[in-house]
């Protein structure tokens, strides 16, 4: 079921270097930080910063999770970029967590501990981060070799719960059911559900054969 444009597109994408994209992917962060630091983020800059970094973590997570279904359903392969996308989601999540600790909760450890024990959305957000962490640590070629492809792959299925927990985190922290977190959650659930559908083997097999 590969799209006609898949092969030429894949050829083109082969020429795109990955490493500059690590920097490109941080442009939204730079923008969000710049606005917050220069007083352009409105009356509640901490919230804007927190939300901006969190939502971009979510977006990169979504794009990272698009890679597999996109390949299976269209033959377009972005697999080369997946590590960059996933790691970027991790950097954003790390910054998001850091801003929450330092600027939102202001290192009030007793309040932070209470939040971590009592607030479902914070627990869920933290769990999502904890799921991202081992994936980030084992993201190097060396770690893949050391772990062996099979167990590395198994570990990196943590991306699924991490994504779901992100969706839950966002749904749970807003005051009521609003369109934006619902939309993000729907996309996340759809991307994960697509993995449960029967794979489009022909597209992959054909690609492998060429």
């Amino acid at each position: 079921m590969a799209l006609a444009i898949a092969d030429p597109l894949n050829q083109r994408l082969k020429g795109v270097p990955v490493w500059p994209l690590y920097a490109v992917a941080l442009i939204p962060a730079a923008w969000v930080w710049w606005q917050a630091l220069t007083g352009q983020a409105g009356p509640n800059p901490v919230r804007e910063l927190e939300h901006g970094l969190g939502i971009w973590a979510f977006r990169f997570m979504i794009v990272a999770l698009v890679v597999t279904p996109l390949r299976d359903w269209t033959g377009i392969s972005l697999v080369r970029f997946r590590r960059m996308l996933g790691l970027t989601a991790f950097w954003y999540a790390l910054m998001h967590l850091g801003v929450w600790l330092a600027l939102d909760r202001q290192f009030a450890w007793s309040a932070i501990t209470a939040d971590l024990l009592k607030r479902p959305y914070i627990i869920v957000g933290m769990l999502s981060f904890l799921a991202l962490l081992p994936m980030a640590i084992t993201s190097t070629d060396g770690m893949i070799r050391r772990m062996g492809a099979a167990s590395w792959k198994k570990l990196h299925r943590l991306a699924y719960p991490a994504g779901l927990l992100m969706a839950l985190h966002y749904l749970w922290l807003v005051k009521s059911w609003t369109a934006e977190p619902l939309t993000y959650a729907a996309i996340m659930v759809m991307l994960l559900a697509m993995r449960l559908l029967p794979r489009q083997k022909p597209a992959r097999a054909r690609r492998a054969a060429t």
């Binding site: 901490v46 209470a114 479902p120 922290l173």
Partner: peptide, 8 residues
């Protein structure tokens, strides 16, 4: 879902 002890 969140604390009301402090405010910003």
């Amino acid at each position: 879902r969140w604390s009301q002890a402090t405010e910003r």
